[in-house]
Amino acid sequence: MKSITLGQYYSVDSPIHRLDPRVKIVLAILYIVIVFLSANILSMALLLGSAFLLIALAHIPVKLVMKSVKPIVFIIAFTAIINIFWTSGEGDPLIDIGFAQIYKEGIVNAIFLVIRIFVLIIGSSILLTYTTTPISLTDGIERLLSPLKKIGLPVHDFAMIMTIALRFIPTLMEEADKIMSAQKARGADFTNGSLIQRAKALIPILIPLFSSSIRHALDLATAMECRCYRGGEGRTRMKILKCGTADIVAVVLVVAFGAAVVCLNVFFA
């Protein structure tokens, strides 16, 4: 129970790990845009190359990344098949099986789509979840969105809610485990029976868990007040985020990469 890690964060030291979380969020968005800009075979190749370059730069084992892509293989395959059958092109279909036709454009589209989704997932997870702890991610989001405070959005409060939620995941998991053991000791059976029976067996876990999380919340609120918490106003932060040379270099590289993709699109259309 104690060894659970939140999200996918992979703890090593790499140039990407060291980037400012704000920069990483912006770069991830930029990267996603670039992924959708690419439109021909050359820019696709460049995309794939960039994804593997990112993995290498972040010092994350390729195996691990591939494992995280696995759950979405089905979705990728599904969209690819839909694309193959639903894209109609000029000229004769490659295969005609009566109710469906497969065109060359369909296959090309499907391949492009697969590459795009694949690169999208890898790029955004390398830039964000693998290399940034949930806490600094929340921190980065809070600071990026802080201009929105001016129009009255409770940015700080949302970030605080996120932080506390992250903080309490292990605590609540431990508690769920305890409650489950206690119920098992009283003869509860969570593993046998029909789906409905098993769902019903979960009720005696969920209710105590729910009431105890409310208790946690009340206690925590008191403790936070005792530590002089009164919202984001007048609060300072210990850690100041600073954009260093590495961050500027990263931005320049991604922008250059975007430019390269656009050039490839234009000149090799």
Binding site: T133, R167, D219, A223, M224, R227, K239
Partner: peptide
């Protein structure tokens, strides 16, 4: 309860 007093996910924070 120590669990109900800690706010952040990192000790120094």
């Amino acid at each position: 309860n120590p669990d109900n007093q800690l706010v952040a996910t990192i000790v120094e924070d």
